[in-house]
Amino acid sequence: MIPVFDGHNDFLQRVVAGGTDIWTTGDGTGHLDLPRARQGGLVGGFFAIWIPAPIGPNDAAAVALMEHPPFAMPLPPQIPFAQALPHAFAQASALKALERTGTLDIVTSARDIRRTIAEGRIAAIMHMEGAEAIPDLDGLHLWHAAGLRSLGPVWSRPTAYGHGVPFAFPSSPDTGAGLTEAGRALVRECNSLRIMLDLSHLNEAGFNDVARLSDAPLVASHSCVHAVSESSRNLTDRQLRMIADSRGLVGLNFASSFLREDGRRLPLEGFETMLRHLDHLLAILGEDGVALGSDFDGALMPRDLPDAAALPALLAAMRAHGYDAALIRKIASENWINLLERTWGA
């Protein structure tokens, strides 16, 4: 079985709600748990800390709107630090609890990833999606000491550091102002600490600012192609070329609404559209710049890729499409690990 290293999941919210048993034995809900990870060949990935929005894209009213484009959901308001921190702390604690089961390691280097995988455990990267729980650079250092090695300055709402893209279709990602002064300082400090900066959810002006300021490869952990699906969350060819020029990487998001050409929030049928996105990414980024970023437990999955156990079906579709074994292994896991080595050091 070809191993898979995944660029994004939102599983920690489920652990906070249900405890570690939903990881070790599964509860029949969601997209991810240890049994399904084993079945699908998942060997590691980015486990996101995310602050719930008062109204999110998976709520009933938003789902109804997103099923019938065009739509443009307004950005949720900024969440204050005092409200964000307890959520972030609970999810970080949940990840530590998973580590105590002996089935998963929180990894902070490429060497750690390789060792953990070789020893048969899941390699988990502590990622923060939206920096509401980081009040300042001292707070960033504290989170780094706790194991944080990947950070998206925003989710799809503003923070003290920048502005996210709304959920909108059809729409450009060019939706607002760039990074704040605090955001520019955050980029520089992340570079100093070798925390990977994640550009998924960041608007185009903020993307441009990170590209100008950062000395690390540019990364979008869970994004799709705007030329295939005109969602504000997807990356334009210009952005993809900038990522390619930095020797960076894009992890393909499995969210049906970002994959579908019509932008509808309905389950994607078959793998043809996912392969169109992958072909486009490969044409611009090359074989070393494309990976996977599922968004498990955070989005509506395709009909034929309902959870982590189904990952081999995607790899089989790549093979049937003409990708050879070496390329599939790169996309499935090797490109992520090599990118992190370039970003973090060995």
Rank of each mutant, 00 (worst) to 15 (best):
D297S: 02
D262L: 06
R212C: 04
P306M: 11
V228G: 05
T236D: 09
L305M: 04
P267Q: 05
G263W: 13
A283Q: 11
R233G: 13
L259F: 00
L240C: 11
H277Q: 07
S232N: 13
S246Y: 14
L268K: 02
R260C: 12
A317R: 08
R276N: 11
R260M: 10
L311G: 00
H321S: 13
L199Y: 03
S223M: 03
H226M: 08
E230A: 08
F296I: 09
F207A: 06
E261K: 13
D304S: 15
N234C: 12
P306F: 09
R329Q: 15
A291D: 07
L266C: 00
D262N: 07
F271Y: 10
A299Y: 02
P217G: 05
T236I: 02
G322P: 01
A326Y: 04
D288L: 01
L199M: 08
D288Y: 05
L285V: 10
A320M: 07
A320K: 14
D297I: 02
L278C: 06
D295T: 09
L249V: 01
A220G: 05
P306K: 05
R233W: 03
E272R: 13
S232F: 01
A313P: 04
R238A: 14
L315T: 03
R329M: 00
M274I: 14
T273V: 15
A220M: 02
E269A: 12
D307T: 10
S257P: 00
D307I: 06
D324R: 05
R264D: 03
A299D: 10
S229C: 15
S246E: 13
L259W: 10
F207S: 12
H226K: 10
R276T: 15
A326T: 15
D297H: 04
A211Q: 02
R260L: 08
L305A: 01
P312Y: 04
H226N: 09
G289D: 07
L305F: 11
L285N: 09
T273F: 01
E204L: 13
A310Q: 09
L311E: 03
F296Q: 11
G251S: 14
L327N: 00
E230K: 11
R233I: 12
I284T: 15
V290R: 08
L268S: 05
D324Y: 00
